[in-house]
C-alpha cells in the first residue's frame, strides 16, 4: 500500500512543523554567525550562565565549513536538558560545576572563563578535556563538569538538524538497507 495523500500531507506537516530551535533557524537565515551572544531567550539560565554555555559549546564544536554548536541551537538544548531532564541533584552538580570551572580558569589565567581571550578559552578547555579524558582530576568538579558539558554539547549538536545532516549524514527515509558497501558511498558517519 502506498501511503495515501492524507497521510503524506500529515507527514510533511509534521516535518515542517517540528520543533526548530530559534538559533538554528536564525543561523540558517542569517548565514550562520550567531555568537558569542545569547541568541535564544533563556528561561532558567541567568545571563552569564547562558553566555558561558554558548561560548563553551562553540569552543567544543565551532563553526567550520558547517555551522557550530550555538548556530545549531545547542545552548537551548543544554538548558532544556539541565532544567527539565535532570533531577535536582544533577542540576545542582551542573550549576556548581560551572562555577568550579570558572574558579579553575581564575586560578590559572586570572579571570573567569567568559572574560578570557578566545585563544586562551580554547587552550583552557583543551587542557581540561585532556585531564578529564585521561581520567585525571575527575574528582575536581570543574574538570568533571567539562566532560558533562562536552557530552551535552555533542548530544545536542549531533541530534540537531545541522549537526546530523550537515556535519554528519542522516537520511529521513533510507528506503533500503545495504549491509556492506564502500565507506566512500556514504562519505560520513551516520548521525544515527
Amino acid at each position: 500500500m502506498s501511503m495515501d495523500r492524507r497521510e503524506a500531507i500529515k507527514r510533511t506537516a509534521l516535518i515542517m512543523g517540528g520543533l526548530v530551535f530559534a538559533p538554528s533557524a536564525m543561523g540558517v537565515l542569517n548565514g550562520c554567525k550567531a555568537r558569542p551572544g545569547v541568541d535564544w531567550n533563556p528561561e532558567f539560565f541567568d545571563n552569564d550562565q547562558a553566555r558561558f554555555v554558548t561560548v563553551l559549546s562553540d569552543i567544543i564544536i565551532p563553526d567550520t565549513d558547517t555551522p557550530g554548536a550555538s548556530a545549531a541551537g545547542v545552548p537551548a538544548f543544554i538548558e532544556e536538558m539541565v532544567f527539565t531532564a535532570y533531577d535536582e541533584d544533577a542540576r545542582e552538580r551542573f550549576l556548581s560545576g560551572l562555577e568550579a570551572f570558572n574558579d579553575l580558569a581564575r586560578e590559572e589565567h586570572g579571570n573567569r572563563y567568559l572574560d578570557l581571550d578566545p585563544e586562551v578559552q580554547f587552550q583552557f578547555a583543551d587542557s581540561q578535556n585532556r585531564l578529564a579524558v585521561g581520567g585525571e582530576h575527575l574528582d575536581e568538579p570543574g574538570t568533571a563538569f567539562f566532560l558533562v558539558m562536552k557530552e551535552l554539547t555533542m548530544m545536542g549538536y549531533f541530534t540537531s538538524e545541522i549537526g546530523a545532516t550537515q556535519t554528519l549524514r542522516y537520511e529521513k527515509v533510507p528506503g533500503r538497507y545495504e549491509g556492506c558497501i564502500p565507506f566512500d558511498e556514504v562519505g560520513k558517519t551516520w548521525a544515527t
Binding site: 516535518i15 520543533l19 536538558m81 531532564a85 541530534t159 540537531s160 538538524e161
Partner: peptide
Amino acid sequence: TATKEPWDLPRNDQIPHE
C-alpha cells in the same frame, strides 16, 4: 511521533524528570 526526526524531539527524546 512516527515521522518525528531527532531534532523534532526535545531532550534527545528523554521525558521531563517531572
